[in-house]
Design a binder for these strands. Structure first.
Lengths: 244, 244
DNA sequence: CGCAAATTTGAACGTAGTCAACAAGTGTGG
DNA sequence: CCACACTTGTTGACTACGTTCAAATTTGCG
């Protein structure tokens, strides 16, 4: 078993060579703790590092001039965080810890060296970027073209599924770990309306709630209502260059 | 001047070496015409190629079960299209030509070879993926947290700016090239409401319209209303590995 | 010129937002 | 250990932004 969380994530997708595994381990050599609620990077502030999330959950968001906040994405162990530093001097988004976390900071120069030494890993990273892109476009379609109910159902399903990639024991019950206001900022709704929709889903028996824990009672119905598509079974990494 | 549109795009970001330029030229050796209205790739259908758009404009969209369509992004010459083929067997989105187009199809194996031979180019592609990701998250925030007026203003500004990267002579007047229904599908609105908002912007003197051409009269005011952020001036490619 | 697609306009409706008040937790310092 | 403050969740009444439906008008194209 490797020490690298990124290696663990990639190991789910392809079989890593010993050299690749070693390179990924080196990448995560340094660790930095992050207390719940504290910011890893802030919008508009300079940031030249990227990070691998090793423990905990973070979220990234944008603040708008009208005072609103849009939560873009949640990050789980093994996720790459702050990759925008590869293109922009200043971070376009804020990343904060939702729970106590541990991250591995990576200098961009280290990243550059990885791409030179391990072209196959750079191909895998590129593919993972496409997976993230697709997740974002799915969310875009949800915000643009689905009802409040559907967006909330989609969020619940997505978070459960992503928790499951980290912890395989999770089935239909999980700790959401978000306030209703945060659910609203992720789905483009107000906290009040999130509350109404959650209670509606609950009263109709699609979900159950107790103490911040959600149970997906009618998972099939939720999936249908949310137009949720699980794309994990149509992955294809057959084109990668040979490993080093 | 290089024959490769991707090289032209990258040349705006970094100085390409002769070897890199040659590799990019080879990548676009084959060409395929695409008539207006025809599909390059279709959602859920198998697609193992990616493409560089050499001429024309395309759009990509998702269809939802409720009958809705969400336009995700418009592509202009030099853009990479169908990159999801790097991760998924079947395309997660449909790409259709808005005008007559020419694309250069690229086999995934060729792409893999590029990453092996030219690590610096693979770093630039990764950075360009981050630029696209950031554009998508900006759109996500617009759909989730801004008014119909603001979304339309943002769309007009974005399209004008992207047309300008292809054709530097464009200033405040440009051919939108979209029906109001398409503007609606891009912004998450109905065609009827798009019409109302466009006329409102027109009556307030923020834009002018004639024969499908838009003039941004009050560009500063539009930019403010849309919370539009031009990120092109904060790019940073200083971390790239050396060229080959 | 004639037809289909796109735009424009009006009226009624509905989803989600706003405002306000209260309840239930949660944590902290006295 | 309790009191107080603060955050989070819940509910109701009212509002408004954007949708829906329908019809007329204009535009573009074969």
């Amino acid at each position: 078993m490797s020490a690298s969380c990124l290696a663990a994530r990639m190991g789910e997708l392809i079989a890593l060579s010993p050299a690749e595994r070693a390179a990924l381990d080196r990448l995560e050599a340094r660790e930095r703790p992050l207390r719940r609620g504290s910011a890893l990077v802030r919008e508009k502030e300079h940031s030249s590092e990227l990070f691998i999330l090793r423990q905990g959950v973070t979220m990234s968001y944008l603040l708008l001039e009208n005072g609103g906040r849009q939560i873009l994405r949640f990050q789980f162990p093994g996720d790459m965080v702050g990759m925008a530093a590869l293109a922009y001097r200043d971070s376009p988004e804020t990343v904060v810890a939702l729970t106590d976390c541990v991250v591995a900071p990576i200098e961009r120069a280290q990243w550059a060296q990885l791409l030179v030494d391990h072209p196959r890993l750079s191909a895998v990273v590129m593919a993972m970027n496409q997976m993230e892109r697709t997740a974002l476009t799915d969310r875009l379609a949800a915000l643009g073209r689905t009802s409040a109910r559907a967006r909330i159902a989609a969020l619940l399903l997505e978070i459960r599924n992503r928790l499951r990639t980290v912890n395989r024991t999770i089935t239909t019950t999980f700790a959401l770990g978000l306030t209703q206001e945060e659910v609203g900022d992720a789905t483009g709704l107000t906290a009040v309306h999130v509350n109404r929709m959650l209670r509606q889903l609950e009263s109709e028996g699609l979900i159950a709630r107790e103490g911040g824990r959600i149970t997906l009672v009618g998972e099939a119905a939720l999936t249908r209502e949310a137009s949720y598509v699980d794309r994990s079974d149509s992955l294809d990494f057959s084109w990668l260059p040979p490993a080093r």
